[in-house]
Design a protein around this nucleic acid. Sequence first.
DNA 1: AATGAATGAGCTTTCATTCAT
DNA 2: CATGAATGAAAGCTCATTCAT
Lengths: 209, 209, 209, 209
Amino acid sequence: MRSTTDLTFTEQARRRQILDGAMRVIAELGYAQTSIARIADEVGIAKSVVLYHFKAKNDIIEAVVATVFGTAVERMAPAVADCATPTEQLAAYIRSNIAFIADNRVPAIAMLEIVTGYRSPDGLRADQAVPLQESADLQGWSVLDPESIFAEGTRTKAFRPLSPVFMKNALRAALDGAVWEYARDPQYDITGYGEELVTIFELATRSQR
Amino acid sequence: MRSTTDLTFTEQARRRQILDGAMRVIAELGYAQTSIARIADEVGIAKSVVLYHFKAKNDIIEAVVATVFGTAVERMAPAVADCATPTEQLAAYIRSNIAFIADNRVPAIAMLEIVTGYRSPDGLRADQAVPLQESADLQGWSVLDPESIFAEGTRTKAFRPLSPVFMKNALRAALDGAVWEYARDPQYDITGYGEELVTIFELATRSQR
Amino acid sequence: MRSTTDLTFTEQARRRQILDGAMRVIAELGYAQTSIARIADEVGIAKSVVLYHFKAKNDIIEAVVATVFGTAVERMAPAVADCATPTEQLAAYIRSNIAFIADNRVPAIAMLEIVTGYRSPDGLRADQAVPLQESADLQGWSVLDPESIFAEGTRTKAFRPLSPVFMKNALRAALDGAVWEYARDPQYDITGYGEELVTIFELATRSQR
Amino acid sequence: MRSTTDLTFTEQARRRQILDGAMRVIAELGYAQTSIARIADEVGIAKSVVLYHFKAKNDIIEAVVATVFGTAVERMAPAVADCATPTEQLAAYIRSNIAFIADNRVPAIAMLEIVTGYRSPDGLRADQAVPLQESADLQGWSVLDPESIFAEGTRTKAFRPLSPVFMKNALRAALDGAVWEYARDPQYDITGYGEELVTIFELATRSQR
DNA sequence: AATGAATGAGCTTTCATTCAT
DNA sequence: CATGAATGAAAGCTCATTCAT
C-alpha cells in the first residue's frame, strides 16, 4: 500500500484542491447535502475525477477529518506544551483552539458538520466507526486530550476537586459550540467568546481557599 | 380546517405511534439517514400509512420538534419560575434541563439530531428556516432563554460582570453536549455531569468580593 | 342491474353535485391532473363519498361524457331537425353547437379535455375505448353526425361535389377549436367565430354555377 | 456551459434515440401517461440512463417540442416564402403543413399530444407556461403565423372581408384535426384531406365579385 | 349513506459507484 | 490522469382503490 507521501506532486495538488472544495461545500450545505457531484462542481472538475482520486465518498470525509485534525493539533499542541502549570495549559488549550477556529472557519465548520452528521452505512456515528477513529489517533489527538490537563490539575491540587471527564466534556462542548455560532454568523466575536471561556474555566477550576 | 385537537382517537394514537418510531429512528440513524420507509419499518406499517397521517416528511419533523420542545418547556419553565434569585434560577435551569434529558433520552437525542442536522432544500439551517422556527416560537421557548437569567444576574450584581450572550452560548453548548454523550453511551452519568455543570456555572458567575 | 332512473332522489342529487365538481376541476386543471381527492375537495365532501357514488374514476369520466353529450344533443338535434335544406341544416348545426358551447363553457371544456386526454389503462383513446363509445351511442349522437348532412347535400346537388368525411372532419375540428380558444380566454367572441364558420362553410359547400 | 452543438457523438446519438422513443410513447399513450420508465423501456435502456441524458422529464418534453417545431418550420417556411400572393401562400401553408404531418406522423402526433395535454404543476396550459413558450419562439414560429397571411389578403383585397383571427383559428384547428384523425387511423388519407382544406379555404376567402 | 384508514403500485428525481476508453 | 456513460438503489410523494365500520 502506498502512503500519502508516495503521491506525485500533481496528485497531491489535486487531492488538496478537492479537499478544499469538499470543505467549502460541507461547511455551506452540511454533511448530508454534500454530494460528490456538488464537490466536483465546486472545484470545477468532472465527478469521475473526484472518485479517481478518492475512490469513495467516505475516503474524502476521512481525509477531511484527518487534515483538519492535523492542522488543529499542529496549532494547539505546541501552545499547550509551552505551559508549565495545568492552569496555564488549560487557558492555552482554549485560546489555541479558538485561534484555530478563527483562522480556519471553513475547515472547522466542515469538521463539525462531519462529526455530528456522519453515519456509517450501518448508522454508526463518526466516533464509533472504525476508519474515522484511526484517522484521529494517527494524528496524535490523545496528546491533546484536555482530560489529562484536568486530571493533572486535580492531582497536584492546582485545581479544586473535580471530575476530569465531566470537565472535559463541558469544555469540548463549549468549544464546539463556538463553531456553531461562527457558522451561523461569520461576524461572531469568537475571540471574545474564547476569553469568556478562559475566565469561566479559570474560575470553575481554581482551588478554593 | 381541523385543528390538532379534534382528530379521532385512532388518528391520535397512530400519530403518536409514528412520532415515537420517528424519534427512535432519528436518534439511532441521525436526521439525514432517516427515511419515511425506515420509520414505517420501525413502526411496522406501510410507508403510505405514514404519509397518510403526515403528508410530508417535514410534517413529521416539525411534529417531533414541537412535541419535544413542548415537553421540555413544560418541565423546565415551572422549575425556573419557582426560583427567586438568578443564581437559583440558573441552577434550576441546568438541573431541570438535565432531568428532562435523563427522562427522555430518545426524544432529546432526536431533537438534537434534527436541530444540528436539518437543512432546508436550499441548505439553510434549522434556525434560519421558517417552518421549524415557528414550531419553536409557538411553544414559548423564549420564556426559557437563559440569556435573560444571565442579564438579570448581571444587572442586579448577583453575578460578576459577564457577557450574557457568551454565557448563554457556553451553557447551551454544555447542555447539548450532555445529549451527545448520552447518545454515545446510555450508561453515561448525565446527572453527575449536570451537577458538575451547576458547580461550574455557580463558580463562574458568582460575583467576586 | 340498476339503471340511472332507479336511483333515489338524494343519490341523484349527489351524483349531479359530484359531476359538476368534476367538470369544474377537469376544465381548470385538465384531465390528467384531476384526481378524485381534488374533486372531493371541490365539492366539499370526503374522497370516499365520491367513490361510494361512482365506484371508479372511470365511471365519473363516463358519466361526464354522457351528460355533456346528452345536453349537447338535446340542444342541437331539434335545431337541425327544424331545417329543410342541407344548407340550412349545416348553418343550424354550427350555430346550435356554438350556442351550446357559449352557454356551457365549463362542461364543454371538460368534455374536450377528456376526449383529448383520456386513455384507458392500456393506452386507448376515448374514441377507441369501448365503454365511452357506448355512452355516446346511447345518446343518439349518430342522429347528429354532420357527415350525413354533407352526404345529403352532395346527393341533392345542394352542395358542390365534396368529400362528406373530410368536410365533417374539418367542421368538427373547427368547432372543437372554438372550445380551446374559449378555454384559453373566457372573453373570446365565440359567437363571432361561429358566424365566421357559418360563412366559411356556406361558401365552401355552395354548388358552383 | 456547453451548448447543444458540442455534445459528443455518442451523446448526440443517445439523445436522438431517447427523443425518438419518447415521441413514440407520447404518440401512443398520450402526454399524461408517458413516464420516464416507459420511455426507457421503449428504448431498451435503464430509467437512469434517460435521466443521465436529460436530467428532468420536462427537458425531454422541451426537446421534443423544439425538435418537431424546428422540423415543421424548416419544411413550411420556404414553401410559403416562395409564394407571391396571399392566395398562393395560404394554399402553400396548408399543403406544406399537411406534407409535414404525412412525413412525420409520430412526431406530429407527439407534438399535438404535448400541446393539448401539457399542464404545468399549477395547471397552466402549454401556451401559458413560460419554458415551452420559449422553445416555440426560438424556432421562429411567428414567421409562420397564418394570421398574417389572412391580414395581408384582406388588406390587398385578394380576400373577401374577413376576420384574420377567426380564420387563423379555424385553419389551425382544421390542420390539427388532421393529426387527430391520422393518430386514430394510420391509413387516413391525409393528403386528400389537405386538398379538401385547400379548396375550402380557397372558396371561403376568395373575394366575391 | 357516508367515511376514516390503509395500502400497493407507480411516479420523478438524486446519488454513489463501476467501467471502458 | 481523466472522464463520459451507465446503472441500481433508494428517496419523497401521489393516487385510485379496498375495507370495516
